[in-house]
Write a protein that binds this DNA or RNA. Structure first.
Lengths: 215, 215
DNA sequence: GTGATCTGGCACCGTTCAGTGTCAGTTTGT
DNA sequence: ACAAACTGACACTGAACGGTGCCAGATCAC
């Protein structure tokens, strides 16, 4: 997708080579997309609005993206990558103890969501029902979050007692539980304190983990 | 919304009074909307497409609805009402035993979703990210499903040990878990048998219920 | 300084679609 | 039979938007 002007033969401009300039513009467009999609929504967004937010004009949009769906995919990837990194870092902060890792991951997740409401909007709302392409991306990302859950809880699971597909479905359910709690949380008009929702999510996770573990 | 021609003074036509004719047309439009939104999606749907599917013309669309968002809300309500009824009926089939009620509700839910893929599409995908109006409807419907869960599991919960907001959040998580499992299930290219996903969902529910109950 | 290159702003075209109006033909009440 | 009401089909308008092209001015290489 896009035509990154295969020739690296261009001049420098404002102290940057052509490739670098092009990538900067692309990054600005993605940032603008996160802003626009995350506040006004994808459906009401137009190419012009995005470009105006980015401080660019339409020609630079088509320099980096085929259409607005391609930009949505890029913005989606940007948001979910950051979110997944944050969650995995939170889990790692928990050290070796499983419960601490779960708690760390949950805390990081709800913090990210609370700090930047555009994240849940793009990651969980705007991205659904656009088209087959985007639906596939959504499925892949959800799978990657399920994988992350499996990595975190993996060591504590009695794998001989639970076949892999069953385990995957369980992890999918756990992701859905946390997601739905977060969604209702950010949408509610007077939300509970973050510690409370973390505790509720933790209750569900540890209940299921208790079922899975050999202990 | 809409102008249901307040005067009941019209003639009869093809054996039906004006009010009845109008309601029949409205019902046909809602059915057509479920078909179109549920297969091609809301975003690519146009008023003309809906009307063609319903076998009506645009003038009858604006007779019953202000715009396509109003129709989406009606289709959404139609779909979710049926789904909720089906789940509650499934739970009632379980009789007095809590576990049987949960199993019955889950079975009814996954059956509905499997029988008519338009249901999950409209209920969980198309409806997100449209606008504030629709988002509110989504929140209300989700709340009503959470309420249904609370009704089903209510008797088995030690309410003194778990404050109400916490309980609500837990139920929200459970709804999210089941929803996400269903979503991934219908989207996967070679899905597991329905008994398997029901069993996985049941594992999560009973694990959390075990945490809540006084037993 | 001078010409080539790059940038941003704008104008333009074609399409799509919501929403309204018109009208000929059909059904009903009398 | 005849007029009033109803229906369905189509034409029309205006706005929004995607996508492309052009041009004046800024920036760089030499």
């Amino acid at each position: 997708m896009s035509s990154p002007s295969l020739d690296e033969t261009g001049r420098t401009y404002r102290g940057a080579g052509p490739r670098q300039r092009q990538e900067e513009r692309r990054a600005r467009l993605v940032d603008a997309a996160v802003e626009v999609f995350g506040t006004s929504g994808y459906r009401s967004a137009t190419v012009e609005k995005i470009c105006a937010t980015a401080g660019l004009t339409k020609r630079y949009f088509y320099e980096s993206f085929d259409d607005s769906e391609a930009l949505l995919l890029a913005a989606y990837a940007s948001v979910t990558d950051r979110l997944r990194d944050s969650v995995l870092r939170g889990a790692a902060d928990g050290g070796a103890d499983l419960d601490a890792r779960v708690r760390g991951a949950l805390t990081a997740f709800f913090r990210s969501v609370a700090d930047d409401p555009r994240i849940p909007r793009i990651a969980f709302q705007e991205v659904l029902g656009i088209g087959p392409e985007v639906d596939n991306a959504y499925r892949r990302v959800t799978r990657s979050f399920v994988d992350a859950v499996l990595v975190v809880i993996g060591p504590a699971v009695d794998r001989t007692a639970f076949p892999d597909p069953h385990l995957r479905t369980l992890a999918t359910g756990l992701v859905g539980a946390v997601l739905m709690i977060a969604q209702q949380w950010v949408l509610s008009e007077n939300p509970q304190p973050i510690e409370t929702v973390i505790a509720s999510a933790h209750t569900i996770l540890s209940a299921v983990l208790g079922e899975l573990g050999p202990t």
